[in-house]
């Protein structure tokens, strides 16, 4: 188990990602400094690595992650953790649009706000957001869980499938087919588990503060009489 350090001002992102894919061994620790908004940092990890990215990451940081534990000290650009399969990505700052889009598994933690379309088309991953999320978050999310400690903008959970959203703050508007539902004991346990996994920054929240949003499933079957009004 080795430790390797890269400086993105000296080494291009392609070389770093090549090292991650080809040369790194499970258990290695990789520190990447001066992220400088570069795109695709640590994309396509496929083993148990501990990766620390210092600075603000550009687009698709940690995309397609499998097994790696990735921490970004600053903010993350569009599509952080997109299509993640497993492992964990922790953004200490804020995240831009499409955070965790289409994630199949793993956990994405964002301490700050997330932009629009957070968790769009979520396919089984978990997302915990310390701040608020932008409009159209959870759009068409099929499986997985989202915990939002702040507020949500317009159209939260539009056209939801089986994913569940837990919201602590207020929602500006729910999307088509999304509805509030009573919290069950399983829901409280799920929120407690995700807050705990998200780390100490989230210990201040109680599962009792969260509301459950899920699909009313009225869009699951085509209704010719709806006259395109939902």
């Amino acid at each position: 188990m080795g430790s390797v350090a890269f400086d993105l001002e000296q080494t291009p992102v392609r070389e770093i990602n090549h090292f991650i894919h080809k040369d790194a061994n499970a258990g290695d620790k990789i520190a990447i400094t001066n992220a400088g908004g570069a795109h695709s940092i640590a994309c396509g990890c496929d083993k148990e690595l501990e990766i620390l990215i210092d600075g603000h990451a550009g687009y698709y940081a940690g995309g397609m992650n499998k097994d790696a534990d990735i921490t970004i000290s600053g903010s993350a650009g569009t599509g952080v953790g997109e299509n993640m399969m497993s492992g964990k990505i922790h953004v200490k700052g804020f995240a831009s649009n499409g955070a965790g889009a289409s994630a199949h598994g793993g956990l994405l933690v964002i301490n700050g706000d997330a932009g629009l379309r957070c968790g769009i088309s979520l396919k089984g991953g978990d997302i915990v957001v310390g701040g608020s999320v932008g409009s159209f978050s959870g759009f068409m999310a099929q499986a997985g869980r989202m915990v939002i400690c702040g507020n949500a903008a317009d159209a939260l959970g539009d056209s939801l499938y089986e994913a569940i959203i837990y919201l602590r703050g207020e929602v500006k508007s729910l999307g088509a087919d999304a509805q509030f539902e009573p919290m069950t004991d399983d829901d409280y346990a799920a929120v407690a588990e995700l807050l705990s996994k998200a780390g100490e920054d989230f210990a201040k929240y109680s599962p009792k503060e969260f509301k459950r949003i899920a699909s009313s499933k009225s869009l699951y079957h085509w209704n010719a009489d709806a006259n395109q009004e939902y």
Binding site: N34, G36, G37, A38, H39, G55, H56, G58, Y59, S75, G77
Partner: peptide, 8 residues
Amino acid sequence: ASEFRSLA
């Protein structure tokens, strides 16, 4: 800037 890399 459109992206942070132009501010870095």
